[in-house]
Write a protein that binds this DNA or RNA. Structure first.
Length: 891
RNA sequence: GGGCGGCUAGCUCAGUUGGUUAGAGCGCCUGCCUUACAAGCAGGAGGCCACUGGUUCGAGUCCAGUGCCGCCCA
C-alpha cells in the first residue's frame, strides 16, 4: 500500500461517489427478510442547489442510514425532489422575462412546457450534488412530486377528503399576495414590526350638524370600502351613537354605527371603521351584521373602480392622497406614530392583502385531532422533546388550510365545473364526465387553480411508494422509521404529513421525527443569499473534502441546536482526515518493511487478538486497543442510535487520534521488526486498524472506503465495500480492565517524565535516569515490564522501587507513584513553584473530601459506592499531599 | 400579548436519571524538522458554570425569580 504523504480528498471522492451509485450498493429490497429501516428525504425544491442546511441534514441522515445498513437492516433511503409551485413558477417567469416573454402571452399550456423543459435541464442539479456528497440513497427509487404516480395519489387524496366532507370551497377572506397574484396560506405569511402611523379620522354624524366621530386606523386607504363604524356595546361613551348613522367622507356613503364586542375600547378612540372586504376582523363582523362587502383593491393591490376618483392608484399612493384630501377637509383629527405588525408574503416579500375570494380549504380540526392523538400515544415520537410541545401547540390552534393557488405550475385541482355553475370532484376527467352526465349536465372546464405545494408534499411518505395501490414497497417500508428535518418546516410539512398520512393510510407516516437546527455563519447569522454570507457546501467539499465538511457539521451541533459553522473548523477536520490517512500510510509502509503482505482476517466481526508467537501471550498494546475498541463501539452504537451525532463525532475523533495514533501505534512501533513476516502482532494491528475504519465509516464514508479498499485489496472473500461490512459492536470478551489499568499507568509514567523534562528544559536527547516509587504492585510491574516503552516514549530509564521516595527525592507525583530523577540541585529547585501549585489543588480537594466525609448525613444518606469512592479518593489525596510535602521539605 | 430556547475557558460549544480536582476543538504561550503525519509531536496557561434565592448530605445539572440574547405564534 503506497500512499501520498498528504491526503487529497479531491483525488478520491468523486470516483467513490460515482461507484457507490453505479454499483447500486444502496438499493433496498422489498422482498428481503431482514428488519427494515426506512426514511424518505425531505424533498428539496427542484429549483434548488445544495446549501449547508441540506448538507447538515444529509450528513446526519447518512450517518444513521449507513450505520443501520452496517448493522444488518434492510435500509431504504428514498430520494426525490419537490416541484415547489410558486418558487419554480417565479423562477421560470423571470427566466422568460429576460427574453421579453410574459407567461400570460404564452398561455397556460405553452408556459407549462417551458417549466417542464426547465425542470428537465436544470432540475437535476441538487440530485447530482447529493450523489457527490455520498448520500447513500436508493437512486433507483428517486421520485418527483409531479410524477404521474404521485399526481394520481394527489387526486385520490383530494377526492377522498372531499367525499368525507373535509374539503370545501367557498368565498372567504384569505391572504392575498399582490406580487405572485395568488392566495397563500397563513403559514406563508411572515410577520414583521414596522414603524407606521395611526390616523384619527373624523366621520360626520348624520343628523347632528357639526358633530362627528373619530375613528383610528392604520390603513386610511381602505376607508373607500367602509360599510359601518363600530363601538363596543358596553362602551358608555358612545351609547348615544347606537342606532345612528355617520357619513363616509370622500365617498358620501351612509354608514350604520354597529355594536360589536370585537371592538377594543382601549384602541384609539374606541370607535373603529369597518371594512369587511379588507380586514379579517371586519369581514367577520360584516358577516355577523349583514354588512355589504365592498372590494376597493384589485388583485395587484391598486384601487379599483369602486374607489371612484382614486381608481388605479397603488395602495400606498392612495393612502397618501386620501390623507392629504382628508387633511384639506379638516377631517384628520390627529396622526400618531404607531408600530404595527405587517404580514409579508414569504415568496414575493410584498405586504399581504386580506382579500375575499373563492378558494378551496381543508377542514383541519378532525385531521389535527388524530395527529395529536398519534403523538400523545407515542405512535410517533418527536425529538428533541421541546418540539413536541410546539407541535401540540400549533395543532391545537390550527385553522383551516387554504389549499388553492392561482398559479399554473402544480397539481391542478381535480374538480370540474359544470354548465350550471356547480362542480364535481373526481379522480380524472372521465370520472367527472360520467358524474356530470348522471346529473344531466355538461362539464365546461377543469378548475384552473392548482394545489398548495405542501399538499403533495404531505403525501410524500406514501405517494412515493405507490399509494393508493397496495404495493410491495408500501407493505415493506411504510410507515417509515424516521424523519429527520428542520424545525422551520415542522408546521408546513411534518404536521401536514401527520394529518394526511393518518387520514389516508390509517397509519402514522413515521415512527420518529428528529428535528435538527439551522446552520449559521461564524457570527451566528442565518445564512442567506441576500446577506451574502452563505458558505457553499460543494465549494467546501472540493477544498477540504466531504468527510471534513460533514464531520464539522455534525460535530458542531448539540442535539437539536443550531450549527455555528466556521471554515477553520472544517479545515480542522481535514487535518483529522489527514491523520487517518497517515496512520494507514504508516501501517502500509511498516507492513512492507516487515514483508508481511496484505491481510485481513476472514471473520472481521469476531476477530480476537492472537498471542505473540514467542511469549505465547497477547501483547499489552493489543489487549488494550481491543478493549478500547469494545468500549468505543458500545458508545458509538448508542450515540448514533439516539441521534447524538456530535457525541459520536467526538468519541471517534478522540479514540482515533489520541488513543489509536498517540498510544497504540507508538507502542506497536516498539515491536516492529524488518522482515518479520505476518506475525500475530501484525494481524492484531491490521484487525484493529480495520475495525477502526469501520467505526468511522458512517461519519467519514469516503476516506474510510478508500483506505479500507486498499487494506483489504486482494483479500479472498472480502466484501465489495466497507459499507456492506458489519458495524463494530460491543464485545464483552474484549473488555480487559487489567490492560486498561496498565496502559493508564504507563501513560502516567510517560506523561510525568515528559512533564518534568519540559519544566526543567531538558533536551529531548538527554536520557532521564530515575526511580519509580510505589506501593502498588501493578505499577511496579509496569515499570519493570515496559522498560522499552518508557525509554522510547519518554527517554526514561527507570527502576522500580517498593515504597515511597525519601525527602526531596521525588519530583513527579501521581496517585499511584513518585518519580525521582537524578538531577543537579539547582534544577530541582526550579520545580518548587510547580509542586506548590499542585499541592494547593490537592489540599483543596482533600479538604473538601474530608469535609463531606465528616458530615454524618452524607455518610448516612449518600449511596454506598459514592461514599466508598470518596474515601478512596481522600486517601489518595492524603498520600499525594504527604509525598509532595515530603519532596518540598527536601528541596 | 402567549409560548419556547440559550447564558459554562479569548471564540464556538459538550456536559443523558444530581455524586472524581468541570471537558473538547480552535486560538494563545514554550520547546521540538523524533523518517506516518509541521495539516505534525511534546508540554503549558486560561473558568465565583449570567445573577439571586430555594430543595438536597451534595447543584453546572432540579425548582422559583431577575437580567440579557435569540426564535416561534398571535
Amino acid at each position: 500500500m503506497q500512499l501520498e504523504k498528504a491526503y487529497d480528498p479531491s483525488q478520491i471522492e468523486p470516483a467513490w461517489a460515482e461507484w457507490w451509485v453505479s454499483e447500486g450498493l444502496f438499493k433496498a429490497d422489498a422482498a428481503s427478510p431482514r428488519p427494515v429501516f426506512s426514511l424518505v428525504i425531505p424533498p428539496p425544491n427542484v429549483t434548488g442547489a445544495l446549501h449547508m442546511g441540506h448538507m447538515f441534514e444529509t450528513s446526519q441522515v447518512d450517518i444513521t442510514m449507513r450505520w443501520q445498513r452496517m448493522r444488518g437492516r434492510n435500509v431504504l433511503w428514498l430520494p426525490g425532489t419537490d416541484h415547489a409551485g410558486i418558487a419554480t413558477q417565479m423562477l421560470v417567469e423571470r427566466h422568460l422575462a429576460k427574453d421579453g416573454i410574459d407567461r400570460r402571452d404564452l398561455g397556460r399550456e405553452k408556459f407549462l412546457e417551458h417549466v417542464w423543459n426547465w425542470k428537465e435541464t436544470y432540475g437535476g442539479k441538487i440530485v447530482g450534488q447529493l450523489k457527490r456528497v455520498g448520500a447513500s440513497c436508493d437512486w433507483t427509487r428517486e421520485r418527483f412530486t409531479m410524477d404521474p404516480g404521485l399526481s394520481r395519489a394527489v387526486a385520490e387524496c383530494f377526492v377522498r377528503l372531499y367525499e368525507r366532507g373535509l374539503i370545501y370551497r367557498g368565498e372567504y377572506m384569505v391572504n392575498w399576495d399582490p406580487g405572485t397574484l395568488t392566495a397563500i396560506s397563513d403559514l406563508e405569511v411572515e410577520y414583521e414590526t414596522q414603524e407606521g402611523s395611526l390616523w384619527h379620522l373624523r366621520y360626520p354624524v348624520e343628523g347632528a350638524d357639526g358633530d362627528f366621530v373619530v375613528v383610528a386606523t392604520t390603513r386610511p386607504e381602505t376607508m373607500l370600502g367602509d360599510t359601518a363604524v363600530a363601538v363596543h356595546p358596553d362602551d358608555e361613551r358612545y351609547r348615544q351613537l347606537h342606532g345612528r348613522t355617520v357619513q363616509l367622507p370622500l365617498v358620501g356613503r351612509s354608514l350604520p354605527v354597529i355594536c360589536d364586542d370585537f371592538v377594543d375600547p382601549e384602541f384609539g378612540t374606541g370607535i373603529v371603521k369597518v371594512t369587511p372586504a379588507h380586514d379579517p376582523n371586519d369581514f367577520a363582523a360584516g358577516q355577523r351584521h349583514g354588512l355589504e362587502c365592498i372590494t376597493v383593491l384589485d388583485e395587484e393591490a391598486r384601487i379599483n373602480a369602486n374607489g371612484g376618483a382614486y381608481a388605479g392608484l397603488d395602495r400606498y399612493k392612495a393612502r397618501k392622497r386620501i390623507v392629504e384630501d382628508l387633511t384639506a377637509l379638516g377631517l384628520v383629527d390627529k396622526t400618531e406614530e404607531y408600530t404595527n405588525n405587517i404580514g409579508r408574503s414569504q415568496r414575493s416579500g410584498l405586504a399581504v392583502e386580506p382579500r375575499v375570494s373563492t378558494q378551496w380549504f381543508v377542514r383541519t380540526k378532525t385531521l389535527a385531532e388524530a395527529a395529536i392523538q398519534a403523538v400523545e400515544e407515542g405512535r410517533t415520537e418527536i425529538a428533541p422533546e421541546q418540539w413536541q410541545r410546539n407541535y401540540f401547540e400549533w395543532m391545537r390552534n390550527i385553522r383551516d388550510w387554504c389549499i388553492s393557488r392561482q398559479l399554473w405550475w402544480g397539481h391542478r385541482i381535480p374538480a370540474w365545473h359544470l354548465e350550471d355553475g356547480s362542480f364535481v370532484v373526481a379522480r380524472n376527467e372521465d370520472e367527472a364526465r360520467t358524474e356530470a352526465m348522471r346529473r344531466g349536465l355538461r362539464v365546461t372546464h377543469q378548475e384552473t387553480d392548482v394545489l398548495d405545494t405542501w399538499f403533495s408534499s404531505g403525501l410524500w411518505p406514501f405517494s412515493t411508494m405507490g399509494w393508493p395501490d397496495s404495493t410491495d414497497d408500501l407493505k415493506a417500508f411504510y410507515p417509515t422509521a424516521l424523519l429527520n428535518t428542520g424545525f422551520d418546516i415542522l408546521f408546513f410539512w411534518v404536521a401536514r404529513m401527520m394529518m394526511l398520512g393518518i387520514a389516508m393510510t390509517d397509519e402514522v407516516p413515521f415512527r420518529k421525527v428528529f428535528i435538527h437546527g439551522l446552520v449559521r455563519d461564524a457570527d451566528k447569522q442565518k445564512m442567506s443569499k441576500t446577506k451574502g454570507n452563505v458558505i457553499d457546501p460543494i465549494e467546501m467539499t472540493e477544498r477540504y473534502g466531504t468527510d471534513a465538511v460533514r464531520f464539522a457539521l455534525v460535530a458542531s451541533a448539540g442535539q437539536g441546536s443550531d450549527v455555528v459553522l466556521k471554515e477553520e473548523r472544517i479545515a480542522g477536520y481535514r487535518t483529522f482526515a489527514n491523520k487517518i490517512w497517515n496512520a494507514l500510510r504508516f501501517v502500509g509502509m511498516s507492513l512492507e518493511k516487515a514483508g508481511a503482505g496484505v491481510w485481513t482476517p476472514a471473520n472481521l466481526a469476531e476477530y480476537r487478538p492472537l498471542p505473540d508467537e514467542r511469549t505465547g501471550e497477547v501483547s499489552l498494546a493489543d489487549r488494550w486497543i481491543f478493549s478500547r475498541l469494545h468500549t468505543v463501539a458500545t458508545q458509538a452504537n448508542e450515540q448514533i442510535d439516539s441521534f447524538r451525532y456530535h457525541e459520536v463525532a467526538s468519541t471517534l475523533y478522540h479514540f482515533f487520534w489520541h488513543e489509536f495514533c498517540d498510544w497504540y501505534i507508538e507502542l506497536k512501533k516498539l515491536s516492529f521488526e524488518e522482515g518479520s513476516g505476518l506475525t500475530n502482532g501484525w494481524k492484531n494491528m491490521l484487525a484493529a486498524t480495520e475495525r477502526s475504519l469501520r467505526l468511522l465509516h458512517p461519519i467519514m464514508p469516503f476516506i474510510t472506503e478508500d483506505l479500507w479498499q486498499r487494506l483489504t485489496a486482494n483479500t479472498p472473500g472480502s466484501l465489495k465495500s466497507i459499507a456492506l461490512t458489519d458495524y463494530p459492536r460491543s464485545a464483552e470478551s474484549d473488555a480487559d480492565p487489567d490492560a486498561e489499568r496498565r496502559v493508564e499507568i504507563l501513560q502516567d509514567l510517560v506523561t510525568t517524565a515528559r512533564n518534568l523534562r519540559a519544566e526543567l528544559n531538558l533536551p529531548p536527547r538527554e536520557a532521564l535516569h530515575g526511580t519509580v516509587f510505589s506501593k502498588d504492585e501493578i505499577t511496579l510491574d509496569v515499570v519493570r515490564s515496559e522498560q522499552d516503552a518508557l525509554r522510547r516514549l519518554a527517554n526514561l530509564q527507570a527502576t522500580a522501587c517498593l515504597g515511597a521516595a525519601g525527602a526531596g527525592q521525588a519530583l513527579g507525583h501521581t496517585a499511584d507513584f513518585d518519580l525521582a530523577v537524578r538531577l543537579p540541585e539547582e534544577r530541582r529547585v526550579a520545580l518548587r513553584s510547580k509542586l506548590e501549585k499542585q499541592l494547593a489543588t490537592l489540599v483543596k480537594a482533600e479538604t473538601a473530601a474530608r469535609g463531606r466525609l465528616g458530615n454524618r448525613s452524607f455518610v448516612e444518606k449518600a449511596p454506598e459506592h459514592v461514599v466508598s469512592s470518596l474515601r478512596q479518593k481522600l486517601s489518595d489525596y492524603e498520600s499525594q499531599v504527604e509525598r509532595i510535602q515530603n519532596t518540598l521539605t527536601g528541596l
